[in-house]
Design a binder for these strands. Structure first.
Length: 564
RNA sequence: GUCACAGUGGCUCAGUUGGAUAGAGCAACGGUCUUCUAAACCGUAGGUCGUGAGUUCGAAUCUCACCUGUGACACCA
């Protein structure tokens, strides 16, 4: 029986019959502070029917409650406060974690259902910026979280590998570029051409015509145009791969925009067959005014397709290929309306599974309060940020732990971990202004704080010379200094399912910070390695904390170095 | 203008389904390394939870209005 049921049962026997145990379950709450016990029951709802003051009721209930099985039950004002039996609770939860290890918290709500996740999706020939980081790490973390909940994620890198920008790029390359330069430093030089194109096109509009012509040649299958395109794409992908390797992110599919080029005609035909296609101002649209949405533009005046046409094709392709139970898109919140339209059109086409599509939106990153713009050349390059963070981590190691082995490897884990954790720590909808000092901070509520806590826990276990406590008999740790930590360990499965339900990695990040803080407090005030009867139980707690901290970090895609 | 999202100490943010004195972290000030890694721990100071009304025994949390900020609003993605 779980501890809350224990409380409900004790209360059921003493409250008036009309209060069901289901109601009690909803009313019972967790007090903010441990001094007020582990569960509390507010007596307000009984005040009317019993015609008594709530604090009187609390007092009377406490007198009637069977206290066996609890450490104690007391009343504080209008509340009845339940204190659990620490020893048996600790014994129970520590055994569970130590025997399940990395499987602790696993659930089966997903039943193996496929969940494609559209994530990362950088544009070819442009560097990855902090904006792409968000989509990448949020998607990656959600994939790990839902895996623990029994789903099967399919990570799709929907590359921006088609569109008029390639016409611009070809013009830029042919006008100002050279093969040698591009091979030397692909992304930066391609970006240079792109930025220059935009600044020069302001005074020379004929450049835009040239770019359009080159893109037209791509669409018509022109060999020169396509081979340049392919070359740019390959160079870009191998550059992106370097970043993904550092982040530890892998993909199941790289089907980007170009992949759907030959799949859009069918979609348009279906839309037409269902009588949804209308002509308006020379373009072909689906009218969505009934839903208070602006029309979905399926085809431009010149006959070219648009963003939503491609996304319709992609959505249908994914349904046919993966038969998904949910389909996720980790894309910035500025595209919220686009996804509303996408779902609306699919629904009108008769696809009820459009309800299973979820836009996992995230907030904008700005620099000095301004929106980042690739075209204007003001971007924050992800590689630079990671490098800065790792350099700083290296410096810290030289200062604090100069004898550490594998310094570079640890610095990489800590520096990259700090950046990733920073991105996942807050609710994903929050906008934030980029600030390097803040992102590479290692103290306080940061990734390195959690990593450090884990490293110290592992250090204790090394000193103890023991690492396996699954068979240990008496883990009944009744130490009140450790109580908050023990209760937090027990919450982990619930935390995972809440993070999954909200598609919110920050739930895990915040939990890991709380657990680390709580353990650090215990660790700072209690000597663990003392030879007495409680040693085994204390070590089991340390081991359990490290298991859960490592798992939390893993769910965020952050590494957990053993020493730092 | 319409729609969406947001507004909590100097800064960055927490705050399950409304509940007990609103919590952290940075920054400031003060303390703790002969003893399990001081990337840590402890303490002090700092808040009319944007404003005003309403619902409720009870509101940072729900409703309405207003103010402020950000984003989106047909041929970019």
């Amino acid at each position: 029986m779980d501890s809350k049921t224990l409380v409900v049962n004790a209360l059921t026997k003493v409250v008036p019959e009309e209060i069901t145990s289901e109601q009690l379950t909803n009313l019972i709450e967790k007090p903010k502070s441990s001094d007020l016990g582990d569960f509390a029951f507010p007596t307000f709802i009984l005040a009317k029917s019993l015609h008594k003051a709530p604090n009187m009721i609390a007092e009377e209930l406490v007198a009637q409650i069977d206290q066996s099985g609890f450490e104690k039950v007391v009343n504080t004002g209008v509340y009845v406060n339940f204190f659990l039996d620490k020893a048996s609770f600790a014994d129970n939860i520590l055994h569970t974690i130590l025997s399940k290890q990395a499987d602790y918290g696993d659930q089966d709500e997903g039943k193996g259902g496929n969940v494609p996740i559209d994530m990362s999706s950088p544009n070819i020939a442009k560097p990855m910026s902090m904006g792409h980081l968000r989509s990448t790490v949020i998607g990656n973390s959600i994939a790990k979280i839902i895996t623990k909940l029994g789903y099967k994620p399919i990570k799709i890198n929907h590359l921006g590998d088609w569109g008029t920008q390639f016409g611009k790029l070809i013009v830029g390359y042919k006008t100002w570029g050279s093969k040698e330069d591009v091979e030397k430093d692909p992304i930066n030089n391609l970006l240079k051409y792109y930025v220059r194109f935009h600044s020069e096109a302001e005074t020379k509009p004929e450049l835009d015509d040239e770019a359009r012509a080159w893109f037209k040649r791509m669409e018509d299958g022109d060999e020169e145009a396509l081979s340049l395109w392919k070359w740019f794409r390959e160079l870009s992908l191998s550059e992106f791969q370097k970043v993904y390797d550092r982040l530890g992110v892998t993909f199941d599919s790289y089907n980007g925009e170009a992949f759907y080029n030959d799949k859009m005609d069918d979609v348009i035909k279906t839309i037409q067959d269902k009588g949804l296609l209308e002509e308006s101002r020379g373009a072909e649209i689906v009218d969505l005014s009934d839903l208070d949405l602006s029309p979905a533009l399926i085809r431009k005046t010149d006959g070219a397709t648009l963003y939503i046409t491609r996304d319709l094709a992609a959505a249908i392709y994914r349904k046919n290929t993966y038969n998904f139970v949910q389909s996720l898109y980790v894309v910035g919140s500025e595209q919220a309306e686009h996804f509303k339209k996408l779902k609306a059109v699919l629904k009108m086409m008769g696809y009820d599974w459009s309800d299973d599509i979820h836009h996992i939106e995230f907030g904008l990153i700005t620099a000095n309060g301004k929106k980042l713009s690739t075209r204007k050349g003001n971007v924050i390059l992800l590689q630079n940020v990671l490098n800065d963070a790792v350099d700083l981590a290296k410096k810290q190691i030289e200062e604090k732990n100069p004898n550490l082995k594998d310094k570079d490897e640890v610095a990489e884990a800590v520096g990259v971990g700090a950046v990733v954790f920073h991105d996942l720590k807050n609710e994903r909808r929050d906008n934030f202004d980029f600030n390097l000092e803040e992102v590479v901070r290692f103290e306080g509520e940061t990734g390195p704080y959690v990593q450090y806590t884990n490293a110290r826990a592992l250090s204790i276990l090394r000193k103890a010379g023991k690492n396996d406590f699954a068979d240990a008999k008496d883990l009944a740790l009744a130490d009140s200094e450790a109580w908050d930590t023990i209760k937090m360990l027990q919450e982990f499965p619930e935390i995972v399912s809440r993070a999954g339900a909200k598609y919110e990695p920050s739930v895990i990040a915040k939990y890991s910070l709380k657990l680390a803080k709580s353990f650090n407090q215990y660790y700072a005030h209690s000597k663990i390695l003392t030879e007495d009867s409680g040693l085994n139980a204390r070590l089991a707690l340390v081991k359990s904390v490290s298991i859960v901290l490592q798992m939390s970090l893993a769910l965020l895609g952050v590494k957990a170095p053993e020493e730092m």
